[in-house]
């Protein structure tokens, strides 16, 4: 019975073609990104005059060292540079090619970069519609007069939403692999990825715990963390969708929040309270590769906690409001 409700919700979302539009945009973006990256590599090779990655990495290190002496760089920026520098030096000394091309590397980059804005945007497009569209379409009256409790109906919508987010992640994995593979080849799941750098706020990098993971294992972790972060985004968008009647305004509110949040992430080092905002905590995978957090003092557990608390609060509010709400005209 409950799964019938969930399947109703998924049928509606798929028949509305909203999900398919998201998929089409994804495909186009993947192709554009892959092409751009492919071109960038060609240009790089032409400028360096060699395809040897050791030369390129050495150039990067020199460049980073120069940036480090830039008097205008803030302490946070310097810490970031220190981290990449340490990573590059480690790679050079252990003979690990960080530029090794391949679809898995592209997937990894796409998720790292996409989680800040692009993928949450897709999640919002889907989640904002879940409840608002029934309100503005009037169909909520049909749903709520069938002798099924309001809590059950909202729960079925939430489960359907989480399943749709999972489908979105599966789709991202498949499309990014297939599309980028056409440019970079389909191998490379076994390549080593370096883990365990620890950058402190003052810019010293601890490499005593460094180890390597095969690419596929790292990808699983990255996608898993991305999925978790997106469930938090979905929960927040779901709450807004229950509170606001129109899909457009519910989407607008969430997008404004998300974009304001990414801007904040850039500025956050000066405003420490920002670390309690969910958007600042979305990049969970940065804790894997040792990138310093946007605000000093944030840890993996802290970010997880912030996301869980916000999501739980959003869902409690959604269910409370929805169960009591008067459905007026």
């Amino acid at each position: 019975m409950f799964w019938q409700l969930v399947s109703n919700e998924i049928v509606k979302m798929l028949r509305k073609r909203r999900f398919q539009v998201v998929m089409a945009i994804l495909l186009v973006l993947m192709a554009v990104f892959s092409y751009a990256e492919h071109e960038a590599i060609l240009v790089m090779v032409r400028q360096l005059g060699t395809t040897d990655w050791h030369v390129r990495l050495q150039q990067e290190i020199t460049h980073d060292l120069n940036r480090l002496h830039n008097p205008f760089a803030s302490a946070a920026e310097k810490a970031g540079i220190q981290a990449t520098l340490a990573e590059a030096q480690y790679e050079l000394s252990h003979n690990i090619n960080p530029y090794a091309p391949g679809a898995p590397s592209f997937m990894h980059t796409f998720m790292d970069e996409g989680i800040t804005l692009l993928i949450p945007l897709f999640v919002i497009v889907i989640a904002s519609d879940m409840v608002s569209s029934e309100m503005s379409g009037g169909t909520i009256k049909m749903l709520l007069t069938r002798g099924v409790s309001r809590t059950r109906i909202l729960a079925s919508k939430l489960v359907a939403l989480f399943l749709l987010v999972a489908m979105l992640f599966a789709a991202i994995a498949i499309t990014s692999y297939v599309v980028s593979g056409a440019f970079f080849g389909y191998g490379g799941f076994g390549l080593p990825v370096i883990m365990g750098f620890q950058t402190s706020a003052n810019g010293t990098v601890d490499i005593s715990h460094v180890y390597t993971l095969p690419q596929w294992e790292y990808l699983l972790m990255t996608f898993g963390l991305g999925f978790f972060a997106c469930l938090a985004v979905a929960s927040l968008a779901f709450m807004v969708s229950t509170l606001v009647r129109s899909t457009a305004s519910s989407m607008g509110i969430m997008m404004a929040g998300l974009i304001a949040g990414t801007l904040l992430t850039a500025l956050a080092s000066n405003w420490t309270l920002a670390k309690y905002l969910p958007v600042v905590n979305l990049q969970l995978m940065n804790y894997l590769n040792g990138t310093p957090p946007p605000v000093a003092g944030m840890t993996f557990a802290f970010s997880l906690g912030v996301l869980v608390i916000w999501s739980a609060a959003a869902l409690v509010i959604s269910f409370q409001v929805f169960a009591r709400k008067d459905i007026m005209g």
């Binding site: 169909t139 049909m142 007069t145 005209g329």
Partner: peptide
């Protein structure tokens, strides 16, 4: 069984 205000349905189904 009821219709409240308008017959509400999903136009895309």
């Amino acid at each position: 069984g009821c219709i409240v205000e308008n017959p509400d349905m999903y136009p895309y189904l």
